[in-house]
Design a protein around this nucleic acid. Structure first.
Length: 847
RNA sequence: GCGAGGAUGGCGGAACUGGUAGACGCGCCAGACUUAGGAUCUGGUGUCUUUGACGUGCGGGUUCAAGUCCCGCUCCUCGCACCA
């Protein structure tokens, strides 16, 4: 094969039409070098001559190898960002690394077991370097000058700063609580990191442990987090967050034990208070010991002990089977003085509401199941319209709207959770309030964010324990609290910070006495909760963010990433943005205006890619086989971006062929007689194809429909190939077609587009070109094709002059022999003409 | 169980507010060029009992006209699953 050297970019605008083959291996690295030298991707954040556009993609964990999954996340995003730039925006499309985290530390521990010394930092920075090189091959417009690496002290220093600010405002606090302990990773996990009772990373069964832990008070923002107005986010994500926060409105009602201790219960149905036939406490409820009678004590304690040892997964396995024990104690219902039994059961959770409930079996499925299991009474207090329920035989709890019965003064009041019943509930709450036995109450499923991790490779929590002064924050002036580097990783998995004497010992900033440093580090979700601000000023050493740049550039205009972060990362990021606002650093409360979740790329076997399945597609190999542009274009062509899908090796061949043809249609020598006359109709057809492509590709890129954008470009290439000959290539229409093809390709295949552009004789980058505008006049036709239907069935096609009158269209349609045949079969009863589209003639058969 | 999304040729997928179903590509078939071709180019390709009939998971309905709207199902994917 002929590998003659193509003209270098530095050579300037020389037109080179030698019939070379498209050789991505030669073109791509050359252009990447040229762009880097030109500083093409360098963004001037202070440029106010153009509107800004902050296009953010979720930064990766530096695993050490760029996966096709990374390509699938970044390449279409890059195309969209490039399109924005060509539309005249000043686009920031940054990249960084979410560099703290368990895998690197675990690798260090594993190495320690083998007697080797590996530091997570060394490992992480090596991996980052490698991934950066791999990212470069993609040809993305990342501005690496704004790179952030969260494990760098210059970054995590500001995690510590923010922590202290939050501590000062009472938003960070330490409390002893039951935590999810991952016995494999030897650390505590947030609720969000526990899936089906197992750690989301280790897969180990999570244990319950009582430990003092640091928390962020995200619950203070629960209501605000439920407000998604003005956010263009997928409904799915909004719903998931809404469910996670789990707001429920209801009332607290004060029951009392026979001894006089208050038992406050939370209920969303205070209107069913008169149907409460027993009370249930969570097994860990502090009142359990006091209400339990001596003869029941042994049984109750045994049940509580079992419940305490049970992991979430055990409870899950038992499904809806109700278990519980009678304490022997009784409570008094404040609305009617009734004496009811007090039970304990693990279906009542200490961590939700007040840890105690009133059970209304007639109107709550769980309570009914419990009542039937243990033979407890069931009393109907809400009667559905036109029915007469019997508590003794009720097989299904009635949770719908109805009218209150057996409820004293409230009998006859319409009630329920529906619109019609809301007033009933409100009336009861008002009365409870007046009587001083209850009050309106809103409860959330959301708990405070537990951020302590008993690990080394994370941001040290900047707190000190002083014997004299107690809990003292490290002064912000002495930040960062750096991770010591001379540490030994122990095969036990215990954090080396707990035994590192120089790290542990500190001086109390307020009394000057001895103090001990906190050894917990922060959850790595801390890092990603505000990282996008840091791209704007990665080296700023006086504040976490540059307020002026943040005012101009945030919120982020577009954020793309996988749905797996629908709750965790995205909710924490929203929380932090509100905290930053309340700290006065920024003036908005929502981080990401638009959110888009791309799908997942699967192996050829339609399964999730994994080393064990052996279905991992290696991007490095693909690039050397086909070139980066082909891989980019194929990932975009495979299907809708939000859908993901399996990798198909034959599919990429089709895209490679297309790029070859695009190359050839622009650069290969034409055939035929250059002196021949080009019919005007032919240039008009070509222009129509060109401007249709502009219109369609523009619409597609606006809507992230990369697959149809590539398809449109293929269509344009096909049309050009058909039109091309020695005479045609001399026309201005041809020149326009070539220029347009190169500019429309630019976001998708940046290297190829640049090479074509340069060979078409341009000295400046195609990526600095303005996006073309479709010329509406080029889209018009002289003749329009109509479909002719008889009774909705296609019978003929006719070409009619554009803009022809309805009568003319109809007359033409009715004259077609194959239409006449059907018209003759009956009486024409109706004529429908859809302008520019079709004619439908309705014929009623002869009787 | 609840919630959301989906089901279109052999395959990936197109189809704007109801208006010629199957764009574009893969694969396949035939041909051309070739010593050869898994290269390239040209043409064809939903199914069938092919002047036509039937076709967008299944069954109904609305309409001149339904992949698209309505009602009732089946299956798949993803969330949430004792949160009072």
């Amino acid at each position: 094969m002929d590998h003659s050297t193509p003209a270098t970019p530095e050579a300037g605008p020389t037109i080179d039409r030698r019939p070379e083959r498209y050789d991505p291996q030669a073109i791509e690295p050359r252009w990447r070098r040229a762009w880097a030298e030109q500083g093409l991707h360098r963004v001037d954040l202070t440029d106010d001559t153009r509107p800004k556009y902050f296009f953010l993609t979720m930064y990766p964990y530096p695993s050490g190898d760029l996966h096709v999954g990374h390509w699938y996340a970044e390449a279409p995003a890059d195309a969209a960002a490039r399109y924005r730039r060509m539309r005249g925006y000043n686009v920031l499309f940054p990249m960084g690394f979410d560099a703290f985290g368990l895998p690197a530390e675990n690798a260090a521990i594993r190495a320690a077991r083998e007697g080797e010394k590996v530091h997570p930092a060394t490992l992480t920075y090596q991996r980052i370097e490698r991934m950066e090189q791999q990212f470069d091959q993609m040809g993305a417009m990342f501005d690496w000058s704004k790179k952030i690496v969260t494990c760098d002290p210059s970054y995590y220093r500001w995690n510590q700063w923010l922590f202290i600010k939050m501590f000062e405002r009472g938003l960070a606090y330490r409390k002893e609580s039951f935590v999810n302990w991952d016995p494999v990773d030897q650390t505590v996990l947030a609720n969000e990191q526990v899936i089906d009772g197992r750690g989301d990373r280790s897969g180990a069964l999570v244990e319950r442990r009582l430990m003092p832990q640091w928390h962020f008070k995200i619950t203070d923002y629960a209501d605000e987090l439920l407000d998604f107005s003005n956010l263009e986010w997928p409904e799915k994500v909004k719903t998931m967050q809404t469910n996670w926060i789990g707001r429920s409105e209801g009332a607290e009602v004060d029951f009392r034990t026979e001894q006089g201790d208050p038992i406050t219960v939370f209920t969303t149905r205070p209107d069913t208070l008169w149907g409460a036939t027993f009370v249930v406490l969570a097994p860990e409820h502090p009142l359990v010991a006091r209400v339990t009678t001596p003869e029941r004590r042994a049984e109750v304690e045994a049940y509580a002990a079992t419940a305490a040892s049970k992991s979430e997964i055990d409870r899950q396995a038992e499904g809806q089977e109700k278990t519980g024990v009678f304490t022997g104690g009784h409570a008094l219902n404040p609305v009617n003085g009734e004496r009811v039994q007090i039970w304990i059961a693990d279906y009542v959770l200490m961590t939700y509401g007040t840890g105690s409930i009133m059970a209304v079996p007639a109107h709550d499925e769980r309570d009914l199941a419990f009542a039937r299991t243990f033979g407890l009474p069931v009393r109907v207090v809400v009667e559905p319209p036109g029915a007469d329920l019997d508590g003794d035989t009720l097989s299904e709890a009635y949770t719908g709207d109805g009218v209150m019965v057996n409820s004293g003064r409230f009998d006859g009041t319409p009630t329920g959770k529906g619109d019609a019943g809301a007033e009933g509930i409100a009336t009861v709450i008002a009365w409870l309030d007046d009587e001083g036995i209850g009050r309106r109450k809103v409860t959330y499923r959301l708990r405070d964010w537990l951020i302590s991790r008993q690990r080394y490779w994370g941001t040290p929590i900047p707190m000190l324990y002083c014997d004299e002064c107690g809990l003292v924050p490290v002064p912000v002036t002495s930040l960062p609290v750096e991770l010591p580097t001379d540490v030994a990783f122990m095969p036990t998995g215990q954090s080396p910070l707990t035994t590192h004497a120089p790290f542990l010992h500190a001086t109390c900033p307020s009394c000057g006495g001895d103090a001990q440093r906190e050894t917990d580090t922060m959850d790595t979700f801390m890092d990603s909760s505000w990282y996008w601000f840091r791209y704007l000023a990665p080296d700023l050493d006086t504040a976490p963010l540059d307020e002026a740049l943040a005012r101009r550039w945030t919120p982020v205009d577009m954020y793309t990433g996988g749905v797996e972060h629908a709750i965790l990362h995205l909710m924490y990021a929203r929380f932090f943005t509100k905290v930053l606002r309340d700290l006065g650093l920024i003036d908005h409360g929502e981080p990401f205006k638009r959110l888009y979740n791309q799908g997942m790329i699967l192996g050829a076997d339609n399964e999730k890619m994994s080393k064990s399945r052996g279905n991992v597609v290696n991007p490095d190999q693909l690039i050397s086989d086909y070139g980066a542009d082909a891989v980019r274009a194929y990932l975009m062509f495979i299907g809708p971006w939000d859908q993901g899908g399996p990798w198909n090796y034959q599919g990429i061949e089709g895209v490679v062929r297309f790029l070859n043809r695009a190359w050839a249609v622009v650069l290969a020598p034409p055939e035929g007689d250059p002196a021949a006359v080009v019919a005007e109709a032919r240039t008009r057809d070509l222009r129509r194809a060109v401007h249709t492509a502009i219109k369609e590709v523009t619409d597609d890129l606006e809507g992230f429909r990369f697959n149809t954008a590539v398809a449109e470009l293929m269509t344009l290439q096909n049309a050009m190939a058909k039109a091309k000959d020695a005479a045609m290539v001399l026309t201005p229409a041809w020149d326009e077609a070539c220029r347009t093809l190169a500019t429309l390709l630019a976001p998708i295949t940046p290297h190829l587009a640049e090479e074509l552009w340069q060979r078409l004789g341009h000295a400046t980058s195609v990526h600095l070109e303005a996006w073309p505008e479709a010329d509406a006049s080029a889209l018009t036709r002289d003749e329009v094709r109509y479909a002719v239907q008889v009774n909705g069935k296609l019978r003929a096609e006719i070409d009619v002059a554009a803009g022809a009158e309805k009568d003319v269209v109809l007359a033409t349609a009715k004259a077609v022999p194959n239409v006449v045949r059907y018209l003759d079969e009956g009486a024409l009863v109706r004529e429908i003409v859809v302008p520019g589209k079709l004619v439908n003639l309705v014929v009623k058969p002869k009787a």
